[in-house]
Design a protein around this nucleic acid. Structure first.
Lengths: 218, 218, 218, 218
DNA sequence: GATGAATGAGGATTCATTCAT
DNA sequence: AATGAATGAATCCTCATTCAT
């Protein structure tokens, strides 16, 4: 016996192993700097097998993005209770976001840092995911805004901008949290979510009630 | 006579031309995909001259980052009035940030997207710049917080987190603004700054006064 | 039940299917550019089976050449009536040649275009076939020449050269006929054979009777 | 001093050296089997330089074909005296053809054997050259046919077929001559030309005068 | 100050071929 | 009789970098 030698492993499993290795490698090195050689070694297979199953570096990266984006979206989606109050939904979504990204830093690195810089086909895939998330937030804000029956209704454009600002804040916080871990690491997702929620929700509430900060109070 | 032929140009100017070309190329293609050939052509000089002046691809990129980071920091610094009220300082800083990044999209792309993904030496340079900006914001928040004599003083860690959230929100908004320009493009920096200021400042005010959103209001 | 699934097919038949697929693929792509993968797919079997039956790409190609060369030689041989007059034999041979090559363009492409370019082992196999055909023609010419009791007997070397010229003319005509089909496609073999026979036979007759074209009639 | 070390050679000359090496290598191995490595070594330069000057294997091969085809056409063209009698023109053309191909066997191998088998872009370039030569022959035959005021004028299609047959005969003879050199090698071009001219011209003359060989003289 | 000529090193991709079942 | 799984060895091509002028 002995596990060494050519392991015969079914394709579906091998593909996942390859994707795991690829995600880790792309996250560490970046798309261009990662070599197929390195990925194959990390996956414990020969390069031709990677090509046989995943066709090309482009398609491999694409598959990574799709897998990680789907996982992130699924994590958020399954955490949010559709019927709940807007603030509660936002809270659950943020929490899920922070916890998932903290648990899958490589996947997050690919989506956040790498995919945007590589160029057209990939950037678009990630932009689509981001847009989906921002849209989800936008709807929540709009709903809350309607609930509040706020007087000078928020302009559509401003709501969209806020949604994007919020997503950016969350992304930045996720990155910062990863680089500067809290003492209580396990709880850091909750902590980030709370910080952001506190920060954002009351800001939003004020906006909805027409309380605005004025540029030159002199 | 004749403009064609090898132009004799003083070194200082040639270096700036090269940096211009390099920034544009790195922004469009990314660090790895940009080739020294392409940069030399874009700069209108031969490759050996690029090496003579800037030594290597790494140093060239490094010089780009430094130049663009310095320019951004200078823009913010010169916009902020040291003695002014915290909210006014924040407003001026945000405004300068949005206007500078909108005016120099390639420089911004390098700092925001490219430099982080390349790896150690560069990521650190950018991280340092980001930290500097976040620190500036942090100090403002802390000052405002002190001014407000807020009761349950904000924890240092929370203030830092907020600063990073704010920077991330600004960055995201800058990117979104670039991709979805307002009708009145010239004014988009001001608009973004206002959106973010409205959003953030009242959120901060609430936090400082101990008004918090509670996770499970049931 | 069910036609799908692994067909159990006797070896002899499978081998012919593989050769069919290989001939078509080699003809379309050339020896080097044709991949064993493509051939296996075209044959409707898995690659290991191709190797099991035909051992290697080289042997597979070799088998193709042999099969096609044998078929062509057999077609010519069976068309020619041994005892007949020399001109009649030549006519029948040409006719058979044009008809067979028109009916089996892939086989002809392998013999004519591909095999010669690949290098030693194969080129020789085809050269041998060509030599066999040229020899057949040479004997006919020599016989006719003897019949005619021609005075300044044709030199051996000249007869051999003529035979090769004739074979080349036939090959070229076959290629041209394939590329520029006559209106009456079915009859194109006969037409080509007639053109060449007209052209060649009277030229030969003149030669045999010592009527020669003189280089510088001034 | 010493010639070793990186020779600095002007581009125009290096390109010719590379083409020489490429023609020799493609002729020996075939397009696919020839490796850029081998060509670079044969040219005495590094691979990147070959790419710098000639861009890709395809373009390199293309350049080889063009150079060799142009040389062959030029040799024939400059040998033929435009105003001369048709038979004399044909004779001069054939002679030039045989002498040029004998003197440049590698070039001839590329045009005759290799280029046709590689596929579309190249095959067409060679087909164009062949068509040009065949057309030249066709015009001569047509002219001779008109001169002879031949009664049942030769059909256009038949003239074209004859031209192609003649070209094929010449090609085949060139190949045979190369493989079976005459005792007097220097004279072998002249010999081949004479053989073919004898063979073809009287055959043509008979055709033009309506003397045909009839398929079934029983 | 400026460049044409040149290369070592490495990366994506493909292919003929084998093994275990 | 037949195949899914796997790989060693090339091959094309690109790029950062240097030298000689």
């Amino acid at each position: 016996m002995g596990t060494q030698g050519k392991q015969r492993v079914p394709r579906a499993i091998r593909e996942q192993q390859m994707l795991d290795a690829a995600v880790a490698t792309f996250a560490k090195r970046g798309y261009r700097a990662a070599s197929m050689d390195e990925i194959a070694v990390a996956a414990g297979v020969s390069k031709p097998l990677v090509y046989l199953y995943l066709n090309s570096k482009d398609e491999l990266f694409s598959a990574c993005i799709r897998r990680e984006a789907d996982a992130l979206k699924a994590a958020i989606r399954s955490a949010v209770e559709p019927g709940a109050a807007a603030d509660h939904q936002l809270w659950s979504g943020l929490l899920a976001f922070f916890e998932h990204t903290a648990a899958h830093p490589d996947g997050w690195a690919i989506l956040y840092s790498q995919a945007r810089t590589v160029g057209e086909p990939f950037a678009e895939e990630v932009a689509a995911m981001r847009a989906e998330i921002a849209e989800f937030v936008r709807v929540l804000i709009a709903a809350a805004s309607a609930d509040a029956g706020c007087d000078p209704a928020l302009a559509d454009r401003e709501v969209a901008a806020l949604a994007h600002a919020l997503v950016g804040a969350a992304e930045s916080l996720a990155g910062w949290g990863a680089a500067n871990p809290a003492r209580d690491a396990a709880n850091s997702g909750r902590e980030n979510a709370a910080t952001l929620m506190n920060f954002a929700w009351s800001g939003l509430a004020d906006l909805m009630h027409g309380r605005r900060w004025e540029p030159s109070p002199r």
